[in-house]
């Protein structure tokens, strides 16, 4: 109970502090409420609300989380209407049927539109089975498109042979390491052979290659995340508080 009260006091104090800072900034004219000030204050409030999760789950985070989810869903619906349904179905199929627009209705769109409607039939217990046709179409189409691209990008692109020996010793070593790495990692992913003896030894080399690659990727990505954090902190201390010019 004491801990809960302490959390409420902390959240309330931060809220009051945030309110006072903004009032001071607005009254001194450092933030223009009707210019970009309202956007900056809202952005700062939500940034702090999301970061408050680092302390623990709290009502402010819950508000921000639900708003975030709701806004994203609303945005997604609008985007779907304006980018897909309106140009591809409404304007090319429905409007030309009822109105002379100088364009013939595109009846070929009926088939994908029907598949889309079938998905909505999940709400009906009697007709819900029709939605499986749409799913089957999507999974089949997806696999059909993906598999040739997969062969192209992950098999053929890797099968570009190069001479092991080059005029430069580092390049020769690199060529050898690439070959060893690819072969040993592929052997690690053998499932129908027990990883013992020679296969076990080579697959251990493969694991080493994988871990070195993951380590490099980890470091690289963490640095990218740091730059995102710096971007947010810059927003707070430069755009909102104006402490950094």
């Amino acid at each position: 109970m004491i801990k809960k009260n302490r959390d409420i006091y902390i959240i309330f104090s931060i809220f009051i502090l945030f309110f006072i800072v903004n009032i001071v900034y607005l009254s001194l004219g450092w933030l223009d409420l009707w210019g970009n000030g309202l956007g900056i204050i809202t952005g700062a409030a939500f940034t702090l609300a999301m970061y408050s999760f680092l302390y623990k789950d709290n009502p402010v985070f819950k508000i921000a989380e639900n708003l975030f989810v709701g806004v994203a869903m609303g945005y997604w619906i609008v985007i779907t209407w304006f980018n897909i349904l309106k140009p591809d179905v409404f304007e090319t199929l429905i409007v030309p049927i009822f109105k002379d627009t100088g364009k013939a209705p595109q009846f070929t769109i009926l088939f994908p539109t029907l598949l889309g409607i079938f998905m909505l039939l999940r709400f009906s217990k009697k007709l819900a089975w029709l939605s499986r046709w749409s799913f089957a179409f999507i999974v089949g189409l997806g696999a059909g498109i993906t598999i040739p691209n997969f062969i192209h990008a992950f098999i053929l692109k890797q099968l570009t042979f190069d001479s092991l020996f080059s005029t430069s010793i580092p390049v020769s070593i690199n060529n050898f390491l690439v070959l060893l790495g690819v072969v040993s990692v592929l052997i690690y992913f053998f499932f129908s052979v027990e990883h013992k003896g020679v296969v076990g030894g080579v697959s251990v080399i493969g694991v080493w290659f994988l871990m070195i690659a993951f380590g490099a990727s980890f470091g690289y990505t963490v640095m990218a995340r740091m730059s995102l954090l710096i971007g947010r902190i810059q927003f707070l201390i430069r755009d909102w508080l104006g402490l950094l010019q």
Binding site: F68, V71, A72, M73, Y75, W76
Partner: peptide
């Protein structure tokens, strides 16, 4: 959620 970071939240 329907977007990446709202999904995370």
């Amino acid at each position: 959620a329907s977007e990446q970071f709202p999904y995370v939240a």
